[in-house]
Nucleic acid binder design. Structure first.
Length: 804
RNA sequence: GCCGAAGUGGCGGAAUUGGUAGACGCGCUAGGUUCAGGGUCUAGUGGGUGUAUGCCUGUGCGAGUUCGAGUCUCGCCUUCGGCACCA
């Protein structure tokens, strides 16, 4: 018996898989398609992160498992290589990204991904930076533009001074840049947006019908932020026109004692009176220079100024002062609110500070109480004219209806979700395919001129001017109008990297088609994706954008489904020493070292055994050699002496075999890989201790191990005398009657405490079991001087005697 | 502040519907093999008690429901994640 040598075995099977095209799928003819997708990596110079390996292996196990269950599994991989990350790294090391990226991709593909042992179909690889790919990224942009789902607007957008570009709302995490944690500021700029808000309700509703990790859905629900209420019209005192506010609590309209406008609100031009102009302008200027973070740091203390203007409350024609404060945001609702200090904590703080009236109109019990803070709960309406005594929940509806009849209000739903700002003032991305002509206006680049190639330039440093470095390239910037042939200018911004990744899974099956983004028949056959595995950090980024784009493509009529991923599973996070891995801490796990030393299989098995796949776990270096030990034991057992060719008949072996098959099957289905491996270890412990040398047992074991450890499984399968792949075998079946033992160790409890254990044959009646239990010596001793009050019988588990 | 998830030995972690808490692995202890080291195999391993196949105790804390609670209910504490002046 030779020792298990992983280097030779892994090299051998990589070669064999390549040569036999084992993982290539006939996409057009596959009878049972299963699209197994994993989030494609960004090919960094540091190499594949252990978190990527963890994610991919967990996904690959599903691919291999489905394959053995008769599916035609398509498991592609690619590279998400555009974006600031690549560009910044290139700037740092002084090598052009167009040179760096292919090197990194090669390293990822040849030295890392292939070794990890996933069943990728390399004939459908995607690289978002190749013109053959980004041509279609641009084409998609144009389709959205033509459908009215992409528009250009000047708006206060999020600007990262460090990245020197604007960001989408989703890329700002509590006021800081998602990538570099720099405090983001607001800047008025003309930007391209995708109308994600057009699908806000659908993005929310469809969460009910897709099979996604609950935590991902929750994050999306929070982000979409639907709230129901009313849009109410207030008149401006002394003006003809009025303005609208949004409120979720129209039942508190009688408690309005002032109004607040966001400092940027355009109507303030008319509202602010002459003698209040100066302090208003000073206030607005101060707010404009502050970042979101600074505003929130000062947020405990409310600030604001009086405008001098008044509004008329539509419910009681009262004249209420209009104030300006930065606690009202221009980007949500109408940018103006009605303030009800008695029932809103923010309004309460503001009113307290500026000495404004606080008038209670909702009471938990119908009586008036002095308020220490705002009462935000429900209750009975008071001080509310004819609505007095009404339940506030009903009041919301009734007050809105009453005002609606007078055309002063309407029911309204608001979302926090914003349109997706996709312009980036950077170099390393797909240029936005738009041409501006003074005569003909904004023109999409005609299809036959795609791709708009990213010019190869030496100086691609962002300058922070608010323009992309491409604007400095006159051959690029100056062009001709596709309509009138006159002089025109190109859009110089590139698109957000998240646009590249929002559609890559449509491209995988269609990589052989150069005349279309995705081939209709293949798309119909393979999409939506059957299973998508990835990190939850993309819950409101990549995953939200992908869902939006799918709905957009569906509306345009390019695809016939609304949701791109039928099932999404969010895997956990791997930590080291309980915390995040980072270069500064020097605790980054390098997969290559472990794969080299202990083998890819041991590394895979350890990653999956470490903890719950959906929860993640803490990586310990000692874990990998421990799993190598397990594989060594597997090796020596399976490659051992001559095998018994008969069906196994020993009842204990039958039990272990069928019980393990059942639990491993179910555990893989629910991504419980750590327990599946534990069961395999138990089976191995049994068969090696009991020296079970049986073909059926060994072959079943290898098949059950195969999704986790592909190289050793193929090798062992071959050594068991087969000349075909173990992945062409079908998944083992179990027989229910063998999954439990013939004799069960019953627990006898007295008053719920375990007092005895005795073996009892399966299949006895309750009376027979009781007889056996009562005849037991130990039970008899315990029963002395006691009386049975109650007997509880749990089949195949326990007997509990309640005695006194 | 709101929403969500979690808290179990020295450690990573198990425990479908309430039914033997600690599976499996690491580490540790003892022993076999070995000149030794390493490797490997066998046994043991929550705490307390000590003649025990015994008894007591034990799943963040405090109550409760139940014959029986890691699991269910109520009230706290802690950690992590999401949202956050969103009207």
């Amino acid at each position: 018996m030779k020792k298990y040598k992983h280097e030779a075995i892994e090299a051998k099977w990589q070669k064999k898989w390549d040569e036999s095209k084992q993982y290539e799928v006939n996409l057009a003819d596959a009878p049972r398609p299963f699209y197994n997708l994993m989030m494609f990596p960004y090919p960094s110079a540091e190499g594949l992160h252990v978190g990527n390996v963890f994610a991919f292996v967990g996904s690959d196990i599903q691919g291999r498992f489905h394959r053995m269950n008769g599916y035609d599994v398509f498991e592609p991989i690619g590279f998400d290589a555009f974006g600031i990350h690549s560009e910044n790294f290139a700037l740092k090391v002084g090598t052009h990204p167009s040179k760096l990226v292919p090197e990194n991709i090669k390293n990822f593909r040849e030295n890392q991904l292939k070794r990890a042992g996933n069943m990728y179909d390399w004939t459908h690889e995607v690289d978002t930076t190749s013109p053959e790919y980004y041509r279609w990224t641009q084409w998609i942009f144009i389709q959205l533009y033509k459908a009215g789902l992409a528009y250009r607007a000047t708006a206060p957008v999020n600007w990262c001074p460090s990245c020197k570009t604007v960001l989408a709302a989703e890329q700002v995490v509590s006021g800081e840049c998602e990538r570099c944690s720099t405090v983001v500021t607001k800047k008025d700029m003309a930007q391209w947006f995708f109308k994600t808000t057009a699908f806000a309700q659908k993005l929310l509703d469809n969460l009910e019908i897709i099979d996604w990790s609950e935590k991902t859905k929750v994050a999306q629900r929070n982000w979409i932020g639907r709230s129901e209420g009313a849009q109410v019209t207030f008149k401006l005192d002394g003006h003809d026109e009025g303005f609208e506010i949004f409120t979720t609590r129209p039942d508190t309209l009688f408690g309005v004692t002032y109004m607040v406008f966001a400092p940027e609100h355009p109507l303030l031009k008319k509202i602010v009176t002459e003698d209040n102009q100066q302090k208003f302008k000073a206030y607005r200027k101060r707010v404009a220079t502050m970042s979101e973070v600074e505003r929130q740091a000062e947020g405990l203390e409310k600030t604001g100024v009086f405008t001098g203007g008044y509004a008329i409350n539509p419910v009681n024609d009262e004249r209420v002062p209009i104030w300006v404060s930065d606690y009202v945001l221009m980007g949500y609702g109408t940018g103006a609110i009605m303030a009800v200090p008695a029932h809103d904590q923010r309004d309460f703080e503001f009113a307290t500070k500026f000495g404004l009236e606080i008038r209670a109109v909702i009471s938990p019990d119908g009586r008036v109480h002095p308020l220490e803070e705002a009462y935000t709960g429900k209750g009975v309406m008071i001080n509310s004219g004819s609505f007095d005594g009404l339940d506030s929940t009903e009041g919301i509806r009734k007050v809105t209806q009453w005002l609606a009849e007078k055309d002063l209000a309407r029911f309204q739903v608001n979302f926090r979700l914003r349109d997706w700002c996709i312009s980036r003032q950077r170099y390393w991305g797909p240029p936005i395919p738009i041409i501006y002509c003074d005569k003909c206006g904004t023109q999409p680049v005609p299809d036959n001129e795609l791709p708009v190639r990213l010019p190869d330039i030496e100086d691609y440093q962002p300058d922070g001017s608010g323009d992309s470095p491409l604007k400095r390239v006159s051959e690029f910037f100056y062009t001709t109008c596709p309509t009138c042939n006159g002089p025109a200018k190109r859009e110089t911004d590139v698109s957000d990297n998240f646009l590249c990744s929002a559609w890559y899974f449509y491209r995988y099956p269609s990589t052989n088609f150069n005349d279309r983004a995705f081939e209709a028949a293949l798309t119909k056959k393979w999409l939506p994706v059957d299973l998508y595995v990835g990190g939850n950090e993309h819950a409101v980024l990549h995953l939200l954008y992908s869902r939006f784009l799918c709905m957009a493509l569906n509306q345009i009529g390019l695809i016939d489904f609304e949701e791109p991923f039928n099932k999404f599973v969010a895997h956990g996070i791997i930590t080291k020493d309980g915390g995040k891995m980072s270069k500064s801490k020097g605790n980054v796990v390098n997969p290559d070292d472990f794969i080299k030393r202990y083998g890819a299989d041991a590394f895979r098995v350890y990653l999956m055994f470490m903890g719950d796949y959906l929860e993640g776990g803490d990586f310990r270096d000692e874990g990998v050699p421990a799993m190598r030990g397990f594989l060594d034991r597997v090796w020596s057992h399976v490659t051992g002496d001559d095998l018994d060719e008969d069906e196994p008949d020993d009842s204990e072996t039958l039990y272990w075999l069928h019980y393990t098959t059942r639990t491993v099957t179910n555990d893989i289905k629910r991504f419980s890989y750590n327990t599946a491996l534990a069961r395999l270890m138990e089976l191995l412990n049994h068969i090696s201790r009991a020296s079970v040398k049986n073909r059926v047992v060994n072959e079943t074991f290898v098949k059950l191990l195969a999704p986790f450890a592909p190289y050793i499984s193929e090798e062992l399968w071959e050594r068991l005398g087969h000349d075909t792949s173990v992945y062409d075998e079908s998944w083992p079946k179990y027989r229910e009657e063998h999954t439990t033992r013939k004799t069960i160790e019953y627990v006898v409890q007295f008053n719920g405490k375990v007092r005895a254990k005795l073996p009892i044959d399966v299949g006895l009646s309750q009376e027979e079991i009781e007889t056996v239990v009562m005849a037991n010596e130990r039970v008899k001793t315990l029963m002395e001087g006691k009386e049975i009050v109650k007997k509880i019988f749990v089949p195949n588990k326990l007997v509990n005697l309640v005695v006194k």
